[in-house]
Design a protein around this nucleic acid. Structure first.
Lengths: 146, 146
DNA sequence: TCGTGTTGTAATATCAATGATTACATTTTT
DNA sequence: AAAAATGTAATCATTGATATTACAACACGA
């Protein structure tokens, strides 16, 4: 299975908030840039808020980013929006036969390797920050004035 | 979302076939070690066969591994059983608004980075072979005689 | 060649997660 | 009080995973 589009939508949201920081960023506005339902945006904003990455203003509306962009990594965002993340990247078949010498040892053979693969992926996610993507975006926007 | 248990089941299957290579390995036998339905085993064996990793004998029954264990990597198995793999690890929201300067550029900003993360994970999968896990299993079985 | 055991596969069913949508209570500001 | 937003619950459709039943196709031994 694929990692939920909540992840790329969240990055999109951050880019919008930072790019249009002079305007009021409502879920309606974000929904129109991402082209999804505003409720999806609100749910994701809620997860990002819970993770301490954004502040959302109830009633008056608007969202802001809580930290400098270079202090927010892809891993922070991934962990904020991937709800099942606690179960790990790999889905293990849970009940191998304990009376089979192979079945009863599958976990001890595989767990460490699978965790290592997950760790490598998360290290990679941790190495990328929103500042990196914003820099690329600004470069493009310089040549792409509307 | 998580990577399907087909992946760990497939590794389990290889371990069984190799460990019990003196016996006839039927889908029934494998199903009892993994503790899933035999049809699930047959489907996975079908995928592994299509990838050229095993041979399955129709009618008479039995399965064999097609290559030396150190020539079969986790990545080979992952690609064989992860049907959606062609779509990539990350699910992109497909229709960002082309009239928004941020929306219209999300793909060019993110694609390369997401592909890189996926590549790093696949490289890691490619670095592990069935020979590695079989070695660990044999070590355990030496101390775990039944 | 007939019977038995096995694989390949279709058809269904259940369950969980995603994403879309409607509705509305709550909150803030004017 | 009215207007504009957010937070959230409730539903729904769709998709993928896994389980299960059923059966045709196949291989081999008696």
């Amino acid at each position: 299975m694929q990692i939920s589009s909540r992840f790329t939508i969240a990055i999109h949201i951050f880019c919008c908030i930072d790019t249009f920081k002079n305007e009021k960023i409502t879920s309606e506005f974000l929904a129109s840039s991402v082209q999804v339902n505003p409720v999806i945006i609100r749910k994701i904003l809620g997860q990002l808020k819970k993770a301490g990455l954004v502040q959302v203003h109830r009633g008056s509306g608007g969202a802001e980013i809580s930290k400098p962009l270079d202090k927010i990594t892809f891993l922070d965002i991934y962990k904020a929006v991937e709800c099942v993340e606690s179960k790990g990247l790999f889905h293990f078949h849970e009940n191998p036969n304990p009376t089979c010498p192979v079945g009863r040892n599958m976990h001890s053979i595989l767990d460490e390797r699978l965790e290592h693969i997950q760790q490598v992926m998360e290290d990679e996610l941790a190495s990328m920050t929103l500042a990196d993507v914003k820099k690329d975006l600004d470069k493009i926007l310089g040549n792409d004035r509307t």
